[in-house]
Design a protein around this nucleic acid. Sequence first.
DNA 1: CCACATTCTTGCAGTATGCAACATTAATGA
DNA 2: TCATTAATGTTGCATACTGCAAGAATGTGG
Lengths: 158, 158
Amino acid sequence: MNGEDQAAVISAVLSGSRLLVAIAARSLGAVADRVTLPQFRMLVVLSGHGETKLVTMAELLDVNSSTAMRMADRLAAAGLVVREVNPMNRRESLMRLTDEGRRIVDQVTARRRDEIAAIVSRMSPAERQALISAMAAFNEAGGEPAEAGSHPLGWPDA
Amino acid sequence: MNGEDQAAVISAVLSGSRLLVAIAARSLGAVADRVTLPQFRMLVVLSGHGETKLVTMAELLDVNSSTAMRMADRLAAAGLVVREVNPMNRRESLMRLTDEGRRIVDQVTARRRDEIAAIVSRMSPAERQALISAMAAFNEAGGEPAEAGSHPLGWPDA
DNA sequence: CCACATTCTTGCAGTATGCAACATTAATGA
DNA sequence: TCATTAATGTTGCATACTGCAAGAATGTGG
């Protein structure tokens, strides 16, 4: 690949990256008065992962277990998650979303999808098709871990 | 646009978003022992914006001025930025990167570009061309503010 | 039963964050 | 000119996020 080609594709990808991050930030702003970003990440994990124990949650979020502990405390106090001891193993306690918690995740996700939909709707059908193919190839080449329930470190990620 | 088309393009874009966020996070990990994420955002703004006063910095980062104030204090203590009173207006003090601060920004940026380059190098030339076009169209449709020095809210953004 | 591992929990320290109050400096108007 | 107002930086206070380390409760293997 020649240098100009290289520079062009990197520049294009970086611009797209900024745009996507901005979209993620805006979609999150809608609930910023109810949950913080780290708290929202925890809700997202619960949304895609179901009942989760503390240690697993800490690994999925890539934070210390004490950090996950206190976040869970606050979310429980806010009524967005519930925690109960696992009857199968009384050492661990499982947490899951309340209806209210799920509502928040759905709200942000819907907003995010709406924003992306609004953008792609301004593209021509040919451009849309090209975008699908190009992103598929990019994701493939990137060894995308983004399959069902695999949240490596969902940052402003929903 | 039909429903399947819509779902396919949104799904593709969301997957790409996750991949790009993961790349941003990894590129940042290299300096995680020297600066925090918020601190790095401040360095990025200074890198693209030159000398900046406190209020402007706070607006660019979308944080309270007191938050920007203390972050600047810590970065100054770490020797990554310097602050000096503006001779033109003694109310305001301008801050700018030190050589050391710029080194950190460059290091992360280079790492990010390397990761993207590695991914696109695994794509065929035709796929790369398609990616450039598709991202350009997407950025255009998104009204991308990502021009020179325009950092709306550069999160894991470099 | 005892040693060990797993899991959760709490204490401590540093950073991030916003609001509100204050001092200093500049701009504005009478 | 001088008083009022605006802009800017700064600090106090409260809350949240973060990791490390130590401890308690529970389970597992010998």
